[in-house]
Design a binder for these strands. Structure first.
Length: 314
DNA sequence: ACTCGCACCTGAGGGC
DNA sequence: TGCCCTCAGGTGCGAG
């Protein structure tokens, strides 16, 4: 569900509520949330390992690259007695501690919500972090395509990122984003440009909604082959993607239903600004032609057959 | 070395 | 009402 604008809206709220707080304890209601969708068999000790690793840690900031978000962790000053086994053994160790972060990926249906203890627990709540601010951060995820876990921070494209995000390219809203590098990679791609836009190792943050929107706004057909497309057109697609995601972020992202909300449970408003996504069979806002819906790379793909001319080589 | 297709889940909505 | 099918903001892995 969430793409860059939605994840960034959530990150901002999480950072506001959690930066500088200490995690006093945690719960894992469904251990599957600790694994990826392809690593669902969770060792029972993983739950204890997670609880031990996060308890007593101080949250420095909520950070993000593409759709990957994480809480960077600092010294657990003031951590409660009895929950500091990880740090206690190293208390006198002069060697610097490895930098850690709590990775949170929202998958298709994940939400992070801030609550006061005692507020009603949603039935899809998979994990909870208790904070010393007398608030708690709840990870709610209907489909469990998301995951959470403590990871070392490693260097990737000029930043410290969680180990499992090392392969993720910079997104268009971060300083490390280099459109020339992306175009340089794109011109080697023989796959459909829509699929290339969804390749998070090439450019991150773009998902199914904004890929369709960016291609429509740039007037490029989703099945165009990047290697056979003018560089100027590729640049236009990247600019459109950046613009549409910035515009969406400015209004809190895109919400079709209650599955995407920010930390306070509020929806975003960009759904009313979508020009093609979800509009199959309706008239194109530019030329009135019926918006087509096809499948590209297994994903529903919406485009205008007139405004986005089919490539001649196909 | 690439590219593709599917599996991983739960739930909503449509057709019969 | 109920059953069965399709579809959904993502990602990782194995097969070809």
């Amino acid at each position: 569900m969430p793409e860059l604008p939605e994840v960034e809206s959530v990150r901002r709220g999480v950072d506001e509520w959690t930066a500088g707080t200490i995690i006093t304890g945690a719960e894992v209601a469904d251990p599957r949330i600790l694994g990826t969708t392809s690593q669902r068999r969770i060792d029972p000790s993983a739950v204890d390992g997670f609880l031990t690793a996060v308890s007593g840690q101080r949250i420095v900031h909520a950070e993000r690259r593409g759709k990957f978000m994480w809480l960077s962790l600092g010294e657990g000053v003031g951590s409660p007695a009895g929950q500091t086994s990880v740090n206690a053994g190293r208390a006198g160790d002069p060697a610097p501690q490895p930098e850690l972060g709590i990775l949170v990926h929202l998958g298709m249906s994940g939400q992070l919500r801030i609550h006061s203890p005692g507020e009603e627990i949603h039935r899809h709540t998979r994990a909870v972090l208790h904070l010393d601010s007398d608030r708690e951060l709840r990870f709610v995820d209907q489909r469990i395509f998301g995951h959470i876990g403590v990871q070392p921070l490693v260097h990737g494209y000029g930043r410290l990122v969680p180990a499992s995000a090392i392969h993720i390219a910079p997104d268009p809203l971060e300083p490390a984003f280099d459109p020339e590098r992306v175009v340089g990679e794109l011109v080697k791609k023989r796959t459909a440009i829509k699929a290339a836009l969804l390749d998070q190792t090439l450019i991150s943050g773009i998902g199914n909604i904004y890929a369709d929107e960016a291609l429509f706004r740039a007037g490029v057909h989703p099945l165009a082959t990047p290697a056979r497309t003018r560089k100027s057109r590729l640049v236009a697609v990247l600019e459109s993607a950046t613009k549409v995601m910035s515009d969406a972020l400015a209004v809190g992202g895109t919400s079709f239903d209650a599955l995407y909300v920010n930390v306070n449970g509020e929806s975003g408003y960009f759904d009313r600004a979508l020009l093609v996504y979800g509009r199959g069979g309706q008239e194109c806002v530019r030329c009135g032609t019926e918006i087509a819906k096809i499948t590209v790379g297994g994903r529903g793909t919406h485009f205008c057959p007139v405004c986005q001319k089919p490539p001649r080589y196909r």
